[in-house]
Amino acid sequence: MLTKTIAITNEMSQLDVVANALELLADEWNLMMEETMKLNLVIEEVVTNIINYGYHDHEAHTINIRLSLDGNLFTMQIIDDAIEFNPLLQAKPDINLSLEDRKIGGLGIHFMRTIMDHLEYSHEDGKNILTLSKKLAGA
């Protein structure tokens, strides 16, 4: 099993660090570009939500992203000490809405559900632990 942990702080500029790390990893682990882009869509949404809504103080926090590839099973685990939030309990956005009824944003949970195969959330020792996995076609 291949594993990699990326630790970032709660700043939007760090999304770039995550995207770059994922790309390097995609090379190393032979992931297809299309899969990598989709995985990054998910990570970007999850981390954006944590950074934008998860903290009420103005302190620096660490968000850990653990990535692993076991055969063709790709797993990402996002661990943060933000306020307790279970994204799996959020309502599904209606992607069939007309343009007028659509909100800009709000696709994160939809991406998670559409792109990943298995979603799991737990809250332990004051931390949110979100585990998302997907069977990759090209790995």
């Binding site: 995207a19 570009m33 882009m37 990054n40 869509l41 970007e44 949404e45 954006t48 343009l99 659509r102 800009i104 944003g105 696709l107 994160g108 991406f111």
Partner: peptide, 17 residues
């Protein structure tokens, strides 16, 4: 354009509106 992120998708939606 060989890559789009969700922030990019939001720009398309914004200008379409």
């Amino acid at each position: 354009m060989d890559y789009v992120s969700s922030s990019g998708l939001r720009v398309f939606l914004m200008i379409l509106k």
